[in-house]
Amino acid sequence: MADLLPIFDGHNDVLLRLYGRVDGARAFVAGTEDGQLDLPRAGQGGLTGGLFAVFVPSPGGFAYADSMMAGSYDVPLPDPLPTKDARGPAMAMASLLFRIEREAAGAVAICRSAAEIRAAMARGALAAVLHMEGAEAIEPSLESLDVFHAAGLRSIGPVWSRPNAFGHGVPFRFPGSPDTGPGLTDAGKALVAACNALRIMIDLSHLNKAGFWDVAALSDAPLVATHSNAHAVTASARNLTDRQLDAIRDSDGMVGLNFATCFLREDGRMDADTPLDTMLRHLDHLISRLGEDRVGFGSDFDGAMIPSAIGSAAGLPALVAAMRAHGYDEPLLRKLGTGNWLRVLEKTIG
């Protein structure tokens, strides 16, 4: 639809949702009854592209939902995941994205540069950028990083919340601070340098405070948190403090607003009955600290409980309508929708 605001999204977990399904690629292209993101719903909502995450879950899953329904919680993190156990599932999820591209016959394009993203969007294709959420599939000596990069990897979060060979993430804790442990390991620091050299964007979203500041000191690229919110609004350990937001601003980076209700609500609860005003409060705060050129969206579709008023990618126009009613003008909406992501991706991945 021509009147939809085009939106580039900083994070989704659809590859995890469809992982292991024989018909995963076909299901994404044709549409599914479950989940939050597929090609038809992307079209209905104006979603024109995004970072598609490879995330390898811990064996046995991660039991957190019941705990996070309460007003305070501190969810124990899974044990570290060995590279030998992460490599196969990571390869399978990356392969799924390539199979989606083939199945879509031109309607989905895996992109390796900002120019390719712009070209895909211009011809009406969904622009997909391969992202890795937690680098467990890469050994500390980093040999396979070159292989993943050659396959299209252009964004990486050194850690998910569980610790690994590269650093330490923040736990799912409310109320809580991101100051939860040591920073990057020597391997993590080497990963930052290698990503700078290869022009792989570094995602700060799950790093703890010490790891964040290690990246800030080491990296020569803009600081980016693909799916994070404001700690000043919601005191979750997963959210960014004002000092962190200021560092991102000073590096000319950006933050993608996370739609997960537990990182939006002031009470920290996971609850789909969350008004869109909570998202506007975070957007207002992020814009006030970062400026209009450094804020976008990082939905966490298929990886989080999001407000029922949105529900799925098809519901993005509800958020856009709320932003218009809140007073955001059209130039700002275009920046938040696609312009800011394209700007920072051009500066990071080329």
Rank of each mutant, 00 (worst) to 15 (best):
L97C: 06
I200S: 03
F263K: 11
L81A: 09
T32V: 14
I349G: 02
F8R: 00
I287S: 00
L286Y: 00
G43N: 03
G256V: 11
A187N: 13
A65V: 05
G298V: 09
A105S: 02
P307T: 15
M91Y: 13
M69G: 12
D250F: 03
L218N: 01
S67T: 05
R343W: 06
A105F: 03
V170N: 06
E139F: 08
A230K: 13
E101P: 06
A86Y: 14
V224Q: 06
G157V: 02
G339F: 11
L198E: 00
P57E: 06
W160L: 07
H168R: 13
M201G: 09
F297Y: 10
R269G: 12
R281P: 03
G176T: 12
D220S: 13
S141L: 10
A260H: 03
P222L: 12
P78Q: 07
A109V: 15
L77S: 07
R294G: 07
D179V: 04
T180A: 10
G46T: 03
A194V: 15
A313Q: 14
L257S: 05
S205T: 08
G31W: 09
A27M: 13
S299P: 15
D66G: 09
L223I: 07
H206G: 04
G337S: 05
L342T: 04
M93C: 12
M93W: 10
R289L: 12
A127S: 13
H285E: 11
W341H: 08
G106E: 10
N164C: 12
D329W: 09
M201I: 05
M132V: 03
H11Y: 11
S161Y: 04
D3K: 12
L245N: 05
V255A: 11
A313M: 12
H206I: 06
L47K: 13
L245H: 09
I248S: 01
R123K: 09
R154V: 02
D214T: 02
A197Q: 04
P158E: 15
A107Q: 11
D66V: 15
K189A: 01
A318K: 10
G291A: 10
